[in-house]
Design a protein around this nucleic acid. Sequence first.
DNA 1: CTCTTTGTTCTATAAGTAATAGAGCAGAGC
DNA 2: GCTCTGCTCTATTACTTATAGAACAAAGAG
Lengths: 139, 139
Amino acid sequence: MILRIDLSSQVPIYQQIRDRVVEAVAAGELAQGSPLPSTRQLAADLGINFHTVNKAYDLLRQEGLLILNRKTGAVVQRDARTGPPPAGFADEWAARLRTLLAEAVAQGLDGPEALAACRAALTTFAGGVVDVTDQGEQA
Amino acid sequence: MILRIDLSSQVPIYQQIRDRVVEAVAAGELAQGSPLPSTRQLAADLGINFHTVNKAYDLLRQEGLLILNRKTGAVVQRDARTGPPPAGFADEWAARLRTLLAEAVAQGLDGPEALAACRAALTTFAGGVVDVTDQGEQA
DNA sequence: CTCTTTGTTCTATAAGTAATAGAGCAGAGC
DNA sequence: GCTCTGCTCTATTACTTATAGAACAAAGAG
């Protein structure tokens, strides 16, 4: 698990860590049961404080993507989560999606271009996109 | 221009104002030249400080969506912007899109469902989505 | 010419967040 | 015993968010 973070970014470090893990899970790079480095280890690797990693892991646990305990360390919980997504996740997510897409449209991207960008991003994830334009399974 | 903001949200007020304006521009509710209320007026309507509105308007100006001056007030700049989107906008936007989509996939949404959500969001904007599945212009 | 409204700028304050740091504890492995 | 693990606690520094009040120049209305 190689984690690239940008210390000069405006995005908080703990958020970047969370984002990279979420993407790795979606891409299938981190499957069910995959171990993540310990908070102290990852902090040392990235040259940051272990409390910052702790915050990222805690966030991921709240989202149901990580299980933490002293025995097993931090392991990915992709399938068979203890509970479904937090209540209201779908609505809140759709609202954020709409805002993000609106941003691109307002900047001059048209509908089909934006949709193509969505399809392109999704094809980088496990399972890909099974679309009417290419019926064959590509996963 | 009715602006709904949630004072109890975790999202900063100035960010909510920006987001709603961006969505209104994308949806075509705010066309080129549309006036926005003055910072003091909108602040009074929303029951917040005018500095907060000022920050939102300033953000929108930096993004090239708003022109501010003493003569005309705040007017929407959708087309014929002074400059194209800030350098690197497309890449940065695509990265945020990927993170957002990854979040949904990691939470159990599959590719086609996520893409459908994107299409649904885009159809609420001006121009809509002209897809291979429905060739007819719907704008 | 007043009076008001506009965008804009300045300082200031209180509350919260982000990141750092150090110390400590309980459970598990060697 | 020693080390490593997740976890918790306090603490500090810097930045962000939102508030507030004051002031200025340019424009419009009366």
